[in-house]
């Protein structure tokens, strides 16, 4: 009860902050659309290739774009944390009796909202262009990806609290972002990849999310791969939330 209220207050604070930076809202909406406009046409040529089973290119490509939006939506959290460490906001909030978990959830829920908004726009825009989402599957998919955004947001926030410097944070985040997204086969499914690469992909937690996402968007819900995707993603979310909360609790030095 008290926790829910604190989370609501702190999420509103973050949402308001984002809302007042219209450039961010704008970029958040346009970047995913650019993938559709500038990249999807290239893929049309691949229709019928392995990994594009039914010939509907967008059915394979779009879940990947949604995963990318979800992953990217949480990544910025650490930057905000460092800015607020420098201006003393986090210190001020930490002197209040507010739960440390609520302090974290403010930015996590804001990021989740900032994933859902462009995701829905992209889905709506793609439907006239031969995208065939399954309603139940897509709703489940969005739930899965909200978990992913929460995980990346918490992870980035924890790193921000740990590293305390924009430059180190940027190095770690961008350094990991590329291998993680490439290995997961986000833009092109790994069915096109050689065996060793497919093997390596299994070490990337994001891989399981992406695999589950592709199935979900076609309406396959009761499936082992989907279960695996949920298990890995939810596990990751729990771990990163716990880590980031611990960081807020100590935020020593």
């Amino acid at each position: 009860m008290k926790l829910a209220r604190e989370i609501r207050l702190l999420t509103m604070r973050k949402l308001l902050e984002t809302w007042r930076q219209p450039t961010w809202v704008f970029m958040g909406l346009t970047t995913p659309l650019l993938y559709l406009v500038l990249f999807a046409p290239v893929l049309r040529r691949l229709a019928g290739a392995p990994g594009f089973p039914r010939g509907h290119v967008l059915d394979v490509f779009l879940p990947g774009v949604l995963c990318l939006i979800a992953f990217g939506a949480g990544m910025g959290a650490g930057w905000g944390v460092i800015v607020e460490l420098d201006s003393g906001v986090i210190e001020r909030l930490r002197v209040t009796p507010v739960s440390r978990f609520a302090l974290l959830m403010g930015s996590v829920l804001r990021d989740t909202a900032m994933f859902l908004l462009p995701a829905l726009v992209v889905i709506a825009v793609a439907i006239p262009f031969d995208y065939h989402p399954n309603p139940g599957g897509t709703a489940t998919l969005l739930a899965l990806l909200c978990l992913l955004t929460a995980a990346t947001s918490a992870w980035s926030a924890a790193l921000g609290l740990k590293l305390r410097e924009i430059s180190s944070l940027a190095a770690v985040v961008t350094g990991l972002q590329l291998p993680l997204t490439l290995l997961a086969g986000i833009l092109l499914p790994l069915t096109l990849a050689p065996g060793w690469l497919r093997g390596l992909a299994h070490t990337d937690p994001l891989y399981y999310t992406v695999e589950a996402a592709r199935l979900l968007s076609t309406g396959t819900i009761a499936n082992w791969t989907v279960g695996e995707g949920f298990l890995v993603t939810a596990g990751l979310t729990v771990l990163t939330l716990a880590w980031a909360t611990a960081k807020y609790r100590e935020a020593a030095s």
Binding site: R5, E6, L16, Q21, S87, L93
Partner: peptide
């Protein structure tokens, strides 16, 4: 924490919010 207040060396006003929003949130927290 309930009994003390701190105005830190780095201040801690939330710059993206108005002064009044800062005050109201602080009270509600």
């Amino acid at each position: 924490r309930r009994r003390i207040g701190l105005v830190g060396q780095r201040g801690g006003a939330d710059l993206a919010a108005t002064g009044r929003e800062n005050l109201l949130l602080q009270g509600q927290l």
